[in-house]
Amino acid sequence: MGLGDARERTSLPVMGGGKSGAPGWLTSRLDDLVNWSRVNSLWPMPFGTACCAIEMMATAASKYDQARFGMERMSYSPRQADVLICAGRLPYKMAPVIRRIWDQMPQPKWAIAMGACASSGNIFDAYSMVQGIDTIIPVDVYVPGCPPRPEALLYGLMMLQEKIRGESVFDKELHEQLRREPPERAGKPNLPPEAIDEVALPFGNSTKQNRVAGLVSTAALARPSDRQP
């Protein structure tokens, strides 16, 4: 966002909206102000369950120092946090825990799935493991890696900052979909049952794409040990 943008925006109508729905000078200035404050004071809620958490700690420590980007400190209370970083694999036993933490965080809030396990279940395509936390909570940024290096997490956080810069407080659709939280949705899965089965069966989220693309062939379902009762 340079000086040129600001000059262009001065030619916009003051209030905006109206029949065209175009952003006005006042509303876009307000968005800039709100997003500027949100972007530069993102407090992460660390949800570290595995080795990714070690990299997350390194990101917060002095060498990488995520405080440079406005994540001034890790917020160990969900009620004072803006972005949930799920670092590590999530077993089903922890699913209600992360869902409750997410429900306790005030709006506006964002989520980062750090690492392959949080994003898709990784190699843990087993009875005990959630196949990607996006089945439980809405995720904004997926950071690949096993585990990702601190640079990767910082890049993910910067991408999240980019995303927040593009948001508008007057965006009704965004508000309806993400910011308004009806109480009956608390503690419920993020995706409908068909969608969860679609991403997780029969081979699990982690390998589905490769198998669909023909990159991996397997006779797993023909083996008696893999059959469903």
């Binding site: 009875y127 068909e194 089965d197 009762p229």
Partner: peptide
């Protein structure tokens, strides 16, 4: 391996 119930 993947449990008796569906993921959903």
């Amino acid at each position: 391996l993947r449990g008796r119930f569906s993921r959903a």
